[in-house]
Design a protein around this nucleic acid. Sequence first.
RNA 1: AGGGCUAUAGCUCAGUUGGUUAGAGCGCUACACUGAUAAUGUAGAGGUCUCCAGUUCAAAUCUGGAUAGCCCUACCA
Length: 1142
Amino acid sequence: MYREFKHLNLPAIDAEILQFWQDNQIFEQSVAQRSADQSFVFYEGPPSANGKPGIHHVMARTVKDIFCRYHTLKGYRVERKGGWDTHGLPIELQVEKELGITKEDIGKKISVDDYNHACRSTVMRYKDLWDDITRRMGYWVDLDNPYITFENNYIESVWWLLKRLYDKKTDAGQSFLYKGFTIQPFSPAAGTGLSTHELNMPGCYKEVTDISVIAMFKVRQTAASKALFDTADEDVRILAWTTTPWTLPSNVALTVGPEIDYVKVQTFSPYNALPVCVVLAKNRLSAYFNPEHADLPLVPFDTAEKKPAIPYRVVKTIKGKDLAGIQYEQLMPFVTSPELDAAAFRVITGDFVTTEDGTGVVHTAPYFGADDMRVAREAGIPMIGIPNEKNPALPFPLVDRQGKFVEELGEEFGGRYVKAEYYPKEVSSQKEFKSTDLLISLRLKEDNKAFKIEKYAHNYPHCWRTDKPVLYYPLDSWFVRASAAKDRMSELNKTINWQPESTGTGRFGQWLDNLQDWNLSRSRYWGVPLPIWRTEDGEEEICVGSVADLSTLVDQAVAAGVMTENPYRLATAANGEFDLHRPYIDDILLVSPSGKPMRRELDLIDVWFDSGAMPYAQWHYPFENQEAFQRNFPADFIAEGVDQTRGWFYTLHAIAVMCFDSVAFKNVVSNGLVLDKEGNKMSKSKGNVVDPFETIAAYGADATRWYMLANASPWDNLKFSAEGILETRNKLFGTLYNTYNFFALYANLDGWKADEQNVMPYAERSELDRWIISRLYSLVAEYRAEMDQYEPTRAARAIESFVDEHLSNWYVRLSRRRFWKGEMNDDKEAAYQTLWECLLVTNQLMCALAPFFSDWMYRNMTASIRANAIANHTPLRHESIHLGDLVLPDPSKIDRSLEKRMDYAQRICSLAFSIRKREKLRVRQPLQKVLLPVLDEAFIHEVDGVKDLILGEINVKELEYVTDASGLLKKGAKANFKTLGGKLGKDMKDAAAVVAGLTNEQISAIEQSGTLRVTINGNEYTLTPEDMILSTEDLPGWKVASDGRLTVALDVMMSDDLLAEGVARDLVSVIQKIRKDKDFQVTDRVVVTVEVHPFMQQVVAQHGDYIKGETLADTLVFTDQVHADLVEVSDGISLHLDVRQS
RNA sequence: AGGGCUAUAGCUCAGUUGGUUAGAGCGCUACACUGAUAAUGUAGAGGUCUCCAGUUCAAAUCUGGAUAGCCCUACCA
C-alpha cells in the first residue's frame, strides 16, 4: 500500500524525515558508501558561534548543501568537515562589553588569563542554536569532528604556515613575513590597528562633515624661492587645504604636482584684508576667486561687509616642479628644532596630486598619511615629533595612542582628543564644546594663517566595532609580503570558476591587481600569537614553526638559564596541554644563538589568517593526516556571501598561492544579501529581521530552501518574503503532493506495484507516455547541465516548469481516465509505470534542493518493493533517496519530434478552448469538427500522431486539414525581418508594407515558384518564402483563433445528437458531483433516480449505457417520486435527482 | 571620490547573436472545468522596458551620458 494523506504538511514531513535520517545515519552512509578515490572536496567557511544564526545563513548554507548533495548523488565522496571561527576582535569586544571593561583594563583589572578564559567560554555560546538550525534546515555537514580555530593543533598548523612564509624569500631575498613600520588605520577607541579587511566592512566609510581649512604657509626668501618674489617685502603664502586640521601641527612638507601649473596671486587676506600673495594651482583659481573681481582696484576691501568683493591679480604662473625646494615657515611651531627647521618645511613633488579639490597643494604630515609618508621619505624630509632616543629618525608622533595631542602642544591643545567623536557624549554634546579641528582652524585664523575655513562633507573610514573615526597612525606591524605574489595570485585566479563570473574577474581580480601587503598584526589578547621571538635590540630573531621546535628551544633556554623550567614538558608530563595562547606563551623566553634572551613579539595575528589556514589546519597538517590533506586540497567547491570576497576568499587564495603555489578552491559561488520584503537590509534596530527557526517551523525547510534559490539567482540580493515561500509551497510541493496522492489512490485500488525487473518497453507505451518520458529525460539533461555550471536557479526553475506545465497539467490531466477506468490492462500498466517513473526521477532531481520532501515521497513510493530491490540489487534498494545514484541522461529516451508534436497538440487545444470560451460553448458540449490549415508537409503527419489526444481534450468529433486547394483559406504574409534586414537595408520598411499587402494569389504563387521579384524604391529584390512569415488570417464562415502561424477553426453548428450527448455529459457531471458530496468511495456502485423529464429520457435512451458506466450506476430510473433537491443539470434543464449507494 | 552590478506589469522574475504583438508566476476581475479540489483552464485589466542622446532599415537588447539603488575599492589633501 502507498500512504495517502489528507493535507500537505511540510513541517511534519521535516520532522519525520529528520528522525529517519538520524535513526539510520543516512548522512554518514551517504558519505561512507562512496569511494575515497573519487572525492569532491568542499570547505566549510567557519561561522562564529558567538552570534545567533540568521535567515541569511540559511541562504548561504543552502547553496553549500545543494552542490554537496548533488555531487554525492553523482557518486562522489563529499566529506564536509564543519568548523568554528573562534578568535578575533568581535569576540573580544563582546567580552569587554559584558565584563564592563575596556582594553586598557586587561592585565590590570582583569588578568589576561581570566580574560582569555572569558573569551573562550563566549565563543561557543550559541553553538546549540547553530547545531539546531543546521539540522532543521537539512544542511548536511559533519558537526561531530569540527575544526576549532582556538585549539592547539589548529594554532600549530597556523604557526607552521607562518614559518613557511617567514622562510620563503622573494627573488630579492626578502622574507614573506617581515616587520615593518607603516601608516595604518588605527582605532584609538578599540586600541588597535585595523586590517584593510576590517576597514572594508560594510558601513565603515561614512559620509561625515568635517571642518576643512585652507592654511597659508609663509614662504621664506631663499635662493630657491627667488622666482616667487617680485619685491623684497612681499608676504607670499602657499595655500594648502586639509580636511584634518589636527594634522597641521605635524606638517613637514607641502606636496605639489610636478606638471601642474601654479599661479601667484596678489590679493588680500579674506579674514582681515591684509595684503598677501598666495600660490595655488591655476585650475583652482576660480574656486576661490570670483573672475568678476579680477579688475577691481587692488585696495583692501571692507572686512565689515558680509560678502566682500576681494580684488586680485594673477601675477605669475609657475610649474610645480619649479616650486620644489622652496622653504616655508613652520605653520604651528609647537615642536621644533634647528635640525628640523633645516631639513623640513619644504615644497616637494608627488604624482598623486590632483587639482580636483583644494588648492592643488597637499599638506603633508607623514605620520598621519600613507601617501604623505611615502613622498616625505623619498624627499628625505624628517618626521616631526617628540624625540626618541632609541631611534632618532623616528620621533614619537604628536598624537598618542588614545587619540590625544601630547602635552608638548601646550595648554591650548595638549591632552585634547583630535576627533570630537573620541570625547564622551556628555562632553561633546555640550553647547560650548568645540572640536579640536575647529579650535585649530580658529587659532590659524587669529594668527592670519587661514585663508578659508568651511565645512566639508566627505567619506571617512570608521572603526567597524566602535563606530568612531579611525586615525592613520604609525604602527609597527608584521606583514605578509602578499604584493610579491600578486602576479601569481592573478594568474591562478584565472583558473578559478567564479559564480557569478564578474565577482572573480572584476571584484576579486581588480583587488588582486592592486594588492598591498597584508598587515597581520593585532595588538590584542584572544587570537593566534605570532610565533616570533626577538632579542631586545632586534638583531636576532627566530620564527617557531611547531610546538616540538618550541619545546626544544625552551630546553636550550633552560640550559642557558633564561628559563627555569620547560612548561611544555611539564604540561605533557602531567597529561595536559600547554595552552598556546597568551599570556602563557608570553612567559616563554628563548635564547638567541649569541646567548641573549629573546622575547615573543607581542602581536597576535589577523583572524582572517586563521580562517584562510583551514585547508591545512583543519587536518593539523603537516603534523598529522597528511594523506587526508592531500586528498582534500584544493577544494572543488566553496560558497560564502559576496562580502567574503576580500575576506575568506582572499585569505584562502593568498595562503594557498604563497605557501603551495596552488589555488585553494576551483569553484566558488558567492551569494548576495538577504534583504527584507521592501529591499532594506535586515537589522535588529529596524526590527525586520526574519527568524530562521520560525520560518522553517511555519513553512518547512524545503519550501524555504527552494524559494530562496528559485526566486532569484543566489548572487542577486534576495528580497525575502513569506508569501514567496507560500507560493513555492502551493505551486511546486502542493502540485507534486497532489500528483502523488492521485497516484497512490488508484495504485492502491488496483493493487499496483512497481517491478524494476519487468519494465514495459517505452515503444509499447502510448504517445502521451513516451512524450512525458521524453520531457522527463530532457529535464534530466538540463538539470545536470545547469548544476554542473553552478546555476541552481535555472535548475530549480526547470524542475518547476516540468512539474507544473508538463507533468501535472498535461500528462496527468490527460491520463486521469486511464487510471480510474476499468480493469488492469496494458494501457493502465503503462500509465502507472510512466507516472511512477516521472515522480521518482523528479524527486531525485529535486532532492539536493528539497531533501526532506523528496525523501519522504521516495520512501512512500518505494517502501513496498524495498525487500525485492535489495534481493535483486536494483537501484531502489536504498532506504533513502540520498543514497542512490543520480539518473543518467539518456538521449535514447528523448524524442524531439514527439515533443514538437505534443507542443502542437497543446497549442491547438489552447486555441480551441479560447474559441469555446468566446462562443460560450462549454467543453462538455461535443462539437462536430475542428479545422486545421496546413502549415507544411510535415504538419499533417505530426498532428495525426496526437489527433486523438486533441479531440478528446477539446471534445470534438473529427479533425480535418485544409489546404490552399480548398479555397477556404485567407492567407496573410508578414516580412521576416531577420532574413530580410540584411538584404534590404534601408528599403526594409517599405518592403514590409509590400509583403503585408500581398494577396492570396501572390502568396500562393511564391509558395509554388519559390521566388518573388519586387521593386522597392527603384531597387529590385528577389524574395524567397523564407523571407516571409505566412499565416492563415481567416477561414471565412468559421470561428477562428490563431497563435503565430498556427490557426484553429471550430465548427460550432449544433445538431440534436450533439446536444443530447452534451446533456448526457452534464448529467454525468452532476451525478459525479453528488457522489462526491456524499463522500462515496470511488468504487461504490449507485442507483440513480431522476424526475420524469421527456428530453432527459430521450437523452438517457440514447446514452444510458455511457452514463451508467461513467457513474458506476447499476440502475437509472425515471419516476415522479424523487426525494431530493432540485439540481440544474444543463442549460435550462433543472430537475430532481437522487443518487444512492446500491 | 572612483570602479562594478542592477533598473522590464501592483509584486517576484524571464527575455538567446539587435528583428516588428516584450513574456511567466503571484495578486485582481469575469467565465469555465473538475472522479487530483488549499488544484486547474480561458479571457480581461495592468508596460514610456528608469531618463536623455547616439549607432542602425530596425534598440528592452549595442554605445555614451544622466538618475536611483546596491556592492566593492579608496585616508588624494
